[in-house]
């Protein structure tokens, strides 16, 4: 379970201080998919990077399975799998070698690593390219490997930041199928996206974030009923003003 309470965060760039998170509070429970929706620059990535211990909260708290991200970083990292859509595995190591490497980094035994590689290979249908260097794989195959690498240590909590950005339809399906599977096995999944249809399809609960503030939060059905809208897209545009115009 991931609990974010009154999270604030500011960055200083060339002397200008900008608050990007203004007291975010939300909870992602085990066995559910929590979707963080928002336009670019809303604060989704900063929130998830704080959960992943890459950034520290300025005020407020973030706990993962009861462990505080600031004081118990290593315990938090042990229980989360983190993947970003921007990640591009490269190099001349094969998928098997990469999985073995990340397994060793997570202090898994050689036997546990072998077993886990077999499981992941079966789950993501990677038999045909398991020993191929990642540099020679297609984007869909690379994304499968990235996904496998991020969860090689069987984390209970899964944090995906825009996992399907710049992926083709088939690669998106791999991610979506995995998220459903993770939810069924009782894991806590948090994902950020700006693809609204995808969020409605995958998420049990949704939080809409804009300009560093959580505008609303709840189950998909409850949100649609409360706001009297037919879908998440309509809800999103009713809450988030589009100041960009047509051109």
């Amino acid at each position: 379970m991931i609990v974010i309470d009154q999270l604030t965060k500011s960055f200083t760039h060339r002397g200008n201080r900008k608050t990007v998170l203004k007291g975010i509070t939300c909870t992602a429970y085990d066995g559910e998919v929590y979707g963080l929706l928002g336009p670019n620059g809303a604060g989704k990535t900063t929130t998830l990077r704080t959960v992943a211990t890459l950034l520290r909260p300025e005020s407020g708290t973030v706990t993962v399975d009861g462990h505080d991200v600031t004081t118990e970083g290593r315990l938090v990292r042990d229980s989360i799998g983190f993947l970003t859509g921007e990640m591009r595995l490269a190099g001349h190591l094969s998928c098997r070698e990469l999985l073995r490497f990340f397994g060793r980094l997570n202090h898994m035994s050689p036997q546990a690593i072998r077993q886990r590689i077999e499981e992941l290979t079966a789950d993501f249908a990677m038999e045909s390219f398991l020993d191929t260097p990642v540099a020679k794989l297609s984007s869909g195959m690379t994304q499968k490997v990235s996904l496998a690498v991020s969860i090689v240590h069987e984390p209970h909590n899964i944090v995906f930041d825009e996992p399907t950005s710049s992926l083709d339809v088939l690669a998106v399906k791999v991610i979506s199928d995995f998220i459903r599977l993770a939810k069924q096995s009782g894991k806590c999944v948090v994902l950020s996206t700006h693809v609204l249809a995808e969020a409605q399809r995958l998420c049990d609960r949704i939080g809409i974030i804009h300009d560093g503030q959580l505008l609303c939060e709840g189950t998909v059905d409850a949100l649609l009923e409360t706001h009297q809208v037919p879908d998440i897209e309509t809800l999103f545009f009713s809450l988030v003003p589009d100041k960009r115009g047509l051109l």
Binding site: L54, I80, F82, L83, M87, H107, S146, S150
Partner: peptide, 13 residues
């Protein structure tokens, strides 16, 4: 640049 440092840093090491 490849975004792969993040996954290395979100680790036990």
């Amino acid at each position: 640049e490849r975004g792969s440092l993040a996954i290395l840093l979100v680790n036990q090491v």
